[in-house]
């Protein structure tokens, strides 16, 4: 057996073991999700039962039909999508330049600001709702999407800045210097060199913000009135089966429906999360 074949064989077995490992891991991780899936496909209105099975005895798609026909899911989806896209765009628009200067420029107050920003996270924000209301109410932003976008972008701003600054730090400054010598303007430098290199970090940050907005319900139910203005997460919250009312299977079905778009987006953009650096020919 040649050395090459031996190596290939070893890799084959190694990878097979790895596949087994990940399949088991995913299966274990997904148990609660599969539980929800099974509840949502079950014809009996119950979250609990003494003989639970992953494949329900009385199979039905009725709950999904109800989610889409009786509830304003498409409307909520639209609201969520508008909020998510605007928040991601504005957050990135604000965070990229800020992260860039904090990474590249030396100026008075830089270090102090960076450290203070992190420390802000230690504030227990249980009571922040009232203050935020006091802020957006005079602006007339209660019960408007702009109000929510403002809150969401502000909440994610520290994370966006810090996260992208971290990645900018890893791009060697020599790359930019070389380009500058080649006669690139500042603007070209950023758009042609830095941003492509930072693409993975931008996508990672965008995903984080997207998921935050998608799942946020506290601000959404407090500041939005009327079911037609809800986001998906807020709508889901209102569908929540409580002791008094609601149906568990419909709620379970809705939970899964809400999380599906995120997973699809995540799957789709993963390709772009690979660093431009590793693919490019930059050698330290």
């Amino acid at each position: 057996m040649s050395l090459r074949r031996k190596k290939r064989l070893r890799r084959f077995f190694g990878h097979s073991a790895l596949h087994v490992f990940f399949i088991v891991l995913c299966a274990v991780t997904l148990i609660p999700i599969l539980y929800a899936l099974s509840v949502s496909l079950n014809a009996e209105n119950s979250l609990l039962s003494s003989d639970f099975r992953f494949i329900p005895k009385h199979f039905t798609l009725e709950n999904y039909k109800e989610v889409f026909t009786k509830q304003a899911v498409m409307l909520w989806f639209k609201n969520s999508a508008i909020l998510a896209v605007s928040t991601v765009m504005i957050s990135l628009g604000a965070a990229i330049p800020a992260a860039y200067v904090f990474s590249r420029k030396q100026f008075a107050g830089r270090r102090a600001i960076l450290e203070i920003l992190l420390l802000l996270y230690s504030f227990p924000s249980v009571l922040s709702m009232f203050a935020i209301y006091k802020l957006i109410s005079p602006m007339g932003l209660v019960n408007t999407r702009i109000g929510l976008i403002l809150i969401y972008t502000g909440t994610m701003a520290v994370f966006g800045l810090w996260n992208m600054k971290g990645y900018f730090d890893t791009i060697p400054i020599e790359v930019e210097e070389a380009a500058a010598i080649d006669g690139a303007s500042n603007f070209q430098l950023v758009t042609k060199i830095v941003l492509p290199l930072a693409k993975p970090s931008i996508i990672v940050t965008a995903i984080m913000i997207l998921i935050y907005v998608w799942n946020e319900y506290l601000f959404a139910i407090t500041f939005m009135t009327g079911a037609e203005n809800y986001t998906l997460a807020a709508g889901l919250y209102s569908l929540q089966a409580t002791e008094m009312s609601g149906s568990w299977p419909v709620f379970a079905a809705a939970s899964l429906v809400v999380s599906l778009p995120i997973l699809i987006i995540f799957f789709a953009v993963q390709r772009h999360m690979t660093s431009g650096l590793t693919a490019g020919g930059v050698k330290g």
Partner: peptide, 28 residues
């Protein structure tokens, strides 16, 4: 000039943080 420029560039981000993160702390 450089410092001014840096603050100008990061102003949107910092203003958002001041409004939504710092203001509630001060208000509390």
């Amino acid at each position: 000039k450089e410092t001014l420029w840096a603050y100008l560039t990061s102003a949107p981000s910092l203003i958002l943080i001041l409004l939504i993160v710092v203001f509630p702390i001060l208000y509390t």
